[in-house]
């Protein structure tokens, strides 16, 4: 019997819409593989420190007005965010039937997430804490970027709620293929293979091999696209989940969909 791909899942929450979507997805995976979910809310130490400075001001983005950094107000806002994140977790667990814990930590966000994620084999977090409502895509947030680079475990970066097909970015990293097979087998989904290649013939050959490998693992698979790495993201739908190597040569900001960086 193939071991489950995830035994413990960490989700970083901050009450933003994407972190709530990440919580939902983490809870679904938790239920599927009986893996507990640890949710962590980090109070940014930098924010905590800056409000202690009497000469530091905040500048309202809505009013472009300077105001003294009121530690009571910011503290209360952080507290409310934690409460909202906890409620979102409770609601997601109640819906999926999974189980998990909720922890509030204080420190540098990426460091705390990484530390909390030790022992976990999947870290879930939102693509960005402040998605741009006007644009189709947001730049990858600084925390997500740092965690995705430094984490020892796989990292799932949620850009949109995942409701669409499963894609595999096949650059020859077997753990990504195996995880795609595991997820697809459990979901009954087809793995769509995209192959980054400067040589289309070679790329196609590698793609066919990947499809065969997936089929050997018992899942249906199809070759979706072969092409230059910069052109491939444009072929992916926004609601898809792309599995790829954490070391893949790709600019994450160009992706239109959520990504699971496999290690």
């Amino acid at each position: 019997m193939t071991p489950p791909p995830f035994r413990r899942i960490l989700v970083a929450v901050d009450a933003s819409p994407l972190s709530q979507a990440a919580t939902d997805l983490a809870c679904r995976l938790s239920k599927r593989w009986q893996a507990p979910v640890d949710a962590v809310f980090v109070e940014d130490i930098n924010i905590v420190r800056l409000v202690a400075h009497p000469f530091v001001h905040t500048i309202s983005l809505a009013a472009a007005r300077r105001q003294s950094a009121d530690d009571t107000l910011i503290g209360k806002a952080l507290e409310l965010q934690a409460i909202a994140a906890r409620r979102a977790l409770d609601a997601a667990l109640a819906t999926t039937g999974g189980h998990g814990t909720f922890t509030v930590r204080r420190g540098r966000v990426e460091a705390e997430v990484l530390e909390a994620g030790q022992g976990c084999d999947l870290l879930c977090l939102g693509w960005s804490g402040r998605p741009d409502s006007r644009a189709r895509r947001s730049r990858l947030g600084s925390v997500a970027r740092a965690v995705s680079r430094s984490a020892a475990a796989s990292v799932l970066l949620l850009q949109n709620p995942v409701t669409g097909p499963l894609f595999l970015w096949w650059d020859g990293f077997p753990p990504a293929l195996e995880m795609a097979a595991a997820l697809a087998a459990r979901e009954g989904a087809t793995v769509q293979v995209v192959v980054p290649a400067h040589d289309r013939i070679d790329g196609t050959r590698r793609g066919v091999e990947a499809v065969s490998a997936l089929q050997e693992l018992g899942v249906t698979a199809a070759l979706h696209a072969v092409g230059r790495p910069a052109a491939l993201p444009g072929t992916l739908p926004a609601d898809a989940l792309l599995l790829l190597s954490a070391e893949a040569e790709i600019v994450l900001d160009d992706l239109p969909c959520s990504a699971l960086l496999v290690r």
Binding site: N46, R49, L50, A77
Partner: peptide
């Protein structure tokens, strides 16, 4: 100096090694 987003707006704070200095 770090440019930090807080729940109530943007703020600037003195830093050292990427961390905001305490008072």
């Amino acid at each position: 100096v770090a440019l930090i987003r807080t729940p109530v707006g943007l703020a600037l704070a003195p830093t050292r090694d990427g961390e905001v200095l305490s008072p």
